[in-house]
Simulated assay, not measured.
Amino acid sequence: MTSATESLPAGLQVFERGWLSANTLLFTGRAQTAVVDTGYATHAMQTVALIDAALGPRPLDLLLNTHLHSDHCGGNAALQSRHPGVRALIPPGEAAAVEAWDEEALSFKATGQRCDRFRFDGLLAPGSEVVLADLPWQVHAAKGHDPHSVILFEPVSRTLISADALWENGFGVVFPELFGEPSFDEVGATLDLIESLAPSHVVPGHGRVLHDAPAALRKARSRLEGFQRQPVKHARHALKVLLKFKLLEWQSISREEWAAWLAATPYVETVRARFFHTSPLDDLAGEILDELVAVGAAATDGARIFNR
């Protein structure tokens, strides 16, 4: 975990997290403090400790989520418990599911991931603005990776909080595509939007702060074109991401526990049935695990599987 502030607006501190947790952003203004994205549930106490150490005696006033995947909102509940007066703003698309805490409508059950129940107090509506560290940030819709995601842009410093819409070497898994909902064009439209904003600095959901948005956009478009030509390649990548995410969480797991998680995780079976229907689940998962081992991202001693 590192903190990056170079060339960013005053009052913005970026905590670069490991890939299990999204980057966490802290804003300290004259009258208000705020956090954007809170990491995964496993790291919730680390998130609280990071924010409290940076804030000192000041309370946390505002909590925002770019979207509601578990690695971006898993620390919400812990921060709300630590700072009872904090107001939480979320994108509007899944507000009803959060209010009812419908884990099936949200992505937590389907991915076999964790998220403690949290509340929200308002919405981050696209087309609106939110004041962070005394500056107005524009809220833009960023469909693709998640149909409800937003990105935030500060036009004076030209700083973009891109969430999982743009990383240094691509973007997040396009989850709607896995369920037969065409979304690659939406990824392209979001990349076009980012290009039109012409950011000088990009704070991605994962990885280091970027200062060459055109280069990142070129890589993202090349990756998108490859997935559009070969959707099965995207589907295999998605499975690899889901399996690696769980290894990051567990660090070590028995073969029996691994098989039980695979069987109980709807996303895995949905992707298998849609794109790899001739391959039994155990065989497909075994192939992907072998690929992770081959690149040094996992290891096994036969009885157990280990993250690397």
Rank of each mutant, 00 (worst) to 15 (best):
T5N: 03
V86K: 03
P59W: 08
A96Q: 15
D116L: 12
A198R: 11
P204F: 05
R255D: 07
L152Y: 14
F276W: 02
F153K: 00
S183T: 09
I305N: 07
G205E: 10
E257V: 09
P147H: 08
A96V: 06
I90E: 00
Y267K: 05
L247Y: 05
V98Y: 00
L26H: 08
A105E: 06
L292C: 02
Q13L: 13
V174L: 04
G75I: 03
W137M: 06
M1T: 13
R17K: 05
A34V: 02
V156G: 01
V150M: 08
T47P: 04
R304V: 05
A31G: 11
G144C: 09
L8Y: 05
F175Y: 15
D212K: 03
A299S: 10
A110Y: 12
V139K: 03
K143W: 03
S21C: 13
P214I: 13
A264Y: 01
T2H: 12
H140L: 09
E103C: 14
E257G: 11
A10G: 12
W167S: 03
R229G: 14
T38Q: 04
S196N: 15
R308W: 14
F27R: 06
L123C: 01
A216G: 08
L123A: 03
V14F: 03
W167D: 03
L292G: 09
H83D: 11
V187Y: 02
Q13I: 13
R30H: 12
R255I: 00
I161G: 05
P59D: 14
I305S: 10
A215E: 12
L262C: 10
K219T: 13
T190M: 14
G75V: 01
P84W: 07
H69V: 05
L62Y: 00
R158I: 13
V232F: 09
L60I: 05
S200M: 11
F275H: 10
A4V: 11
G180T: 06
G85K: 11
D146G: 01
L20D: 01
L68I: 11
G286Q: 00
Y267H: 06
L210S: 12
D52G: 08
F179T: 13
G170Q: 09
A41M: 02
T2N: 15
L289C: 01
K109I: 04
A273T: 09
F227A: 11
A95V: 07
V187E: 06
T159S: 15
K244W: 07
L25R: 10
F245V: 02
L193Y: 08
L160S: 06
L132Q: 01
L166K: 03
S252E: 08
D212Y: 01
R17M: 14
L123W: 07
R272N: 07
H148T: 06
D282A: 15
